[in-house]
Design a binder for these strands. Structure first.
Lengths: 228, 228
DNA sequence: CGCGGCTTTGATGTTCATCAAGTAAAGTGG
DNA sequence: CCACTTTACTTGATGAACATCAAAGCCGCG
């Protein structure tokens, strides 16, 4: 009778262990593993079998696909509380995309079988997963549509605001990715991403110190993002 | 004791009423409504409250968003057996997308409350919904990435092949949408969609009779789609 | 027949990708 | 710690791809 399940104190408990009995919880807690990753480490790899249900406890990761021309397309940046393996876990036996750390990260992993068993046995738990999954896929789709309807400047502005508003909640932040990855996210070339950034800098809208970005004229940037 | 639930004979029974008891089934069957739509009718409208869980029995629909510049972006074409309201039902109280018929269609609607109740009570049923939802969102995301990495010609070729292979399963078919809608789907202008089609026609790759398209050189079109 | 919407074509200009070259920064081995 | 290599970043020049604008043809419908 292990009374000391550390999940009891996990800040994600409410999110994930919602609506399950203490027995069920104990069982999950015993089969779960925490993993630490450095920047650049793969958490999941495209086409590899899905074994764990993974969520991010801390850090930041990018979800991307490598298409058959060898190029990478980034589809999402996941932050803590996001379920990293949520998109294809229930429809495929292998990952449809790769997940890589862009900041030091910690994940909590539960064997996918355990989670599936629990879903089958507990509808309330299933409902929670459904809600979370719906949220994540909705976000991914919406973001891709938002990016798609903008031009180069609008897209770059959108990304900067995304990091400032949603990820770091601070107008000045250190970009966890390089220029090439910004390009892979917004579907433009590295050179043109740089050109847009330089323009913003010359116009006094942002300041650039290597990877550190400071948004000086927030409203102007917002306007450019809304297409100006 | 109504022994005559018509769902018993519904071809979608296996898909949706999987793993539920005959009592549960009877209850769903009694609260469900079938609706018929003409081409151009709205099935769901963006920002309107979600009341029903909807799936498509027959026909063809487009899912799209109207962004704040008033332009429409098509994100998916749903065909029978697809759950039309599957993307945001569990995370939002209003639709994130509009759904409009592009062919005469029939839907089966079940009050969302009923479905949620059933999910909460029956994990196996929930698992089925999860799988379906995962499949749909995976498809939407994958398709958008596939389109994004192609140029004009590649995108138009991709759409034609999509209709031929996935929707109509026939190299010649009648396009259910106009040129503008193709453009809204692939993120290009109407004029350029037409130019690409005309090129394909002049090169003898396809034949065009108004909305009827006949793919003559399938392999060539495939090559163009894979970027050539 | 005439009107409005859809389609098509052409001309023009803008936006963006590509190619090339150079600078800065960061890692590597002696 | 310094030369060396590699990787990231930056700028410029050029051409291709695409959007925009304008106009005309087509087709269905009242």
């Amino acid at each position: 009778m292990n009374q000391e399940c550390s999940c009891e104190n996990c800040e994600l408990k409410e999110l994930f262990f919602h609506n399950i009995s203490s027995n069920e919880m104990m069982s999950l807690c015993n089969s779960r593993i925490e993993r630490n990753y450095e920047k650049g480490d793969y958490i999941n790899e495209q086409n590899k079998p899905i074994e764990d249900f993974t969520y991010l406890k801390s850090g930041l990761v990018k979800l991307f696909v490598t298409n058959n021309t060898g190029k990478e397309q980034i589809l999402y940046f996941a932050k803590p509380f996001d379920f990293v393996s949520l998109l294809s876990v229930f429809s495929h036996s292998t990952y449809s995309y790769s997940v890589m750390c862009i900041e030091e990260s910690t994940t909590c992993n539960i064997p996918i079988k355990e989670v599936k068993r629990l879903i089958n046995e507990n509808g309330k738990f299933a409902m929670g997963i459904l809600e979370k999954m719906s949220t994540v896929s909705d976000n991914v789709i919406k973001e891709s549509l938002e990016i798609r309807r903008r031009n180069l400047r609008g897209r770059v502005a959108y990304v900067l605001l995304h990091f400032a508003d949603n990820i770091y909640k601070n107008p000045s932040f250190e970009l966890p990715i390089n220029r090439k990855e910004i390009a892979e996210y917004i579907g433009m070339t590295t050179e043109n991403v740089i050109r847009a950034l330089t323009e913003f800098r010359k116009d006094g809208i942002i300041k650039i110190f290597g990877k550190v970005i400071e948004i000086v004229q927030y409203d102007t940037l917002k306007q450019i993002s809304e297409h100006g």
